[in-house]
Structures are given as C-alpha cells and as structure tokens.
C-alpha cells in the first residue's frame, strides 16, 4: 500500500535534515506505528506521504503511484487526523461533519452513528468552541474516517484522552483494521503501540533504528527469564529462573510443589527499554 525508499527531506530555510534516510513498507490491512521522541520526524514523514510537504528526496509509492504523480483524487482515498483538532469553532459537531464531508464523492452516510460511537451524541448540537480538548479530539477522529477512506493517518490519536475514551478510539482503530483499512499512526505512547500496531518503526533524528512486531522486539531485547513470586513460611520471596527447560528446573519444581505461587512474569523488555537500548535516549 505504501512503499517508502530512501526518503529525505529538509524544511526550507533549515540547514538540518529533518528526514535523513527512511525506508519502510506498509501492507494493506496493516496497522503501522511510528514511535519516537519529540522532533524525531514522525509528523514530517506523515505530512510528506499525505502530500502537505513538497520537495522530498527518494521515493514514496502509495496505492501504486508515486506521491508526486497523484492529483486531488488522492484525498478521496485517505483520511487524516492531525495531532491537534482542526474544526469550525462556531459550528456544531454535526455541522462540521456535514460541511467537511460534503466535499467527498462518497459523502459520509452515518454521521449520527459515528457521533454515538465516540460518545458525542449528547453534544452533537453544541458549538465546537464549547468542547473540551478530548471531545474535539474525538470529533476530529471521526472527521478523518467518515468518508470511508482506504488509508488512514493518525497523528497521536489518543493524546489528551482519558483511558475510557482512548479505549473507544483504539477499538475503532482495530475495527478499521479488521475491515481491511491500512493505518499509519504516530505516537510516543508505548501501550498504544503495543496494543494496536502490527509493526512499529523506531524513529530518531530522521532515521529508523528498528522495524518489527512489538512482541518480537520485546522478546529479542529481553532476557529469557521468569520471575516467580511465592509465599514461603509466611514470607513473600522471589526467584529469577531461566526460561529454558523451566519444567525440569528443580527450584521451580520445589516452588510448584511446596509453596503458594503469587505471580509469574516473563522478563521481556518493554518497548521503552528497547528504544533506549537502540537509540541511547528515552522516548519522551
């Protein structure tokens, strides 16, 4: 669906390269996450693919055609939610969706349903200027998906949302994926990446340091150990044991037989730890 090769970009009037050399592919139906600290180049990459920045080096092939060869029909097929909400302040949620939706050939069918889905049905006739940040984010999110595009770009889709509303958005993303949509999101939230993304790319200073399934990264850079917590003579104790041949490990056998187990945890790395390991810096 998206095939980026040796992408390079510098902002005009800036001597520094914002994107140095990026290559990655996103398959149809995949949720692909861009993970990196502030200033890494996540938004810049998305804007290049969307077509809001011109003059890139390398190639961006999307839906079978080089980005620079696409015309305005491109926008019939993609949906974009920017990192901060962009809506008519003096208009209601409903008016916003109706007006912006009217430019698409396949005009949005179920605006009411979408409003209900993100819990805005009670606020649909309220002016957007009276919305909270989280309400605007949710409205902005359904604005991006209302015309049923094939590829979706989300820039920090859960920022500013409480856990309940973040869950709603994440559920919709999973549902979109199940309907065959291709999704490209950026985030610096580990849990979002872990729960949603089929694959993630770590990006730092305009370069990618790793691309893989979140689980693979966590296992590859973790230690093959388990930590077992158990009660022994009324005291909580813990043991770190190698994962290999765990069932034949005499210590483990002893714990299993003679003590009450409280917790068992495998020692895979968190994405955060993998990131620090690979880039020598934290994500936030």
């Amino acid at each position: 669906m998206i095939n980026v090769r040796n992408l390079q970009f510098s902002y005009p009037k800036s001597s520094k390269e914002a994107i140095k050399d990026l290559s990655f592919s996103i398959a149809k139906g995949e949720v692909f996450g861009f993970l990196g600290p502030s200033g890494a180049g996540k938004t810049t990459t998305q804007r290049l693919i969307i077509g809001l920045l011109r003059g890139y080096g390398g190639s961006i092939e999307i839906m079978g055609k080089e980005r620079s060869m696409w015309d305005y029909n491109f926008y019939e097929k993609i949906g974009v939610a920017f990192d901060f909400p962009n809506l008519y302040k003096k208009l209601t949620a409903r008016e916003n969706l109706k007006l912006i939706g009217s430019y698409y050939r396949s005009a949005p069918k179920d605006i009411e349903g979408l409003l209900v889905r993100v819990g805005l049905e009670g606020e649909r006739n309220k002016k957007v200027e009276d919305y909270s940040k989280g309400m605007k984010m949710r409205l902005n999110f359904i604005r991006a998906i209302m015309h049923d595009p094939d590829i979706l770009f989300f820039d920090e889709p859960t920022s500013g949302l409480d856990p309940v509303n973040a869950k709603i958005i994440k559920d919709i993303i999973v549902e979109l994926k199940n309907n065959g949509k291709t999704i490209f999101l950026t985030t610096h939230h580990m849990d979002v990446a872990e729960q949603l993304c089929d694959r993630v790319a770590f990006i730092n200073e305009g370069l990618i340091s790793a691309i893989d399934r979140p689980k693979n990264l966590m296992v590859q850079y973790g230690k093959p150990m388990v930590t077992v917590e158990f009660e022994k003579f009324g005291e909580v104790q813990s043991e770190k044991l190698p994962l290999e041949n765990l069932k034949d490990n005499p210590i483990f056998e002893d714990i299993l037989r003679n003590h009450r187990i409280l917790t068992i945890h495998s020692q895979e790395a968190t994405l955060e730890e993998v990131f620090i390991l690979l880039n020598g810096r934290a994500l936030i």
Binding site: I50, V80, F82, F84, P85, N86, L87, Y88, Y103, Y104
Partner: peptide, 14 residues
C-alpha cells in the same frame, strides 16, 4: 487559526 485550511487541504476540495 481554527485549522480549517489544514483540514480542507486533505479533502478533494482544490
């Protein structure tokens, strides 16, 4: 300021 221009720039409106 309201970001409308940015929003419209990713719709088919030329």
């Amino acid at each position: 300021d309201q970001g409308i221009i940015q929003t419209l720039s990713v719709t088919p409106l030329k």
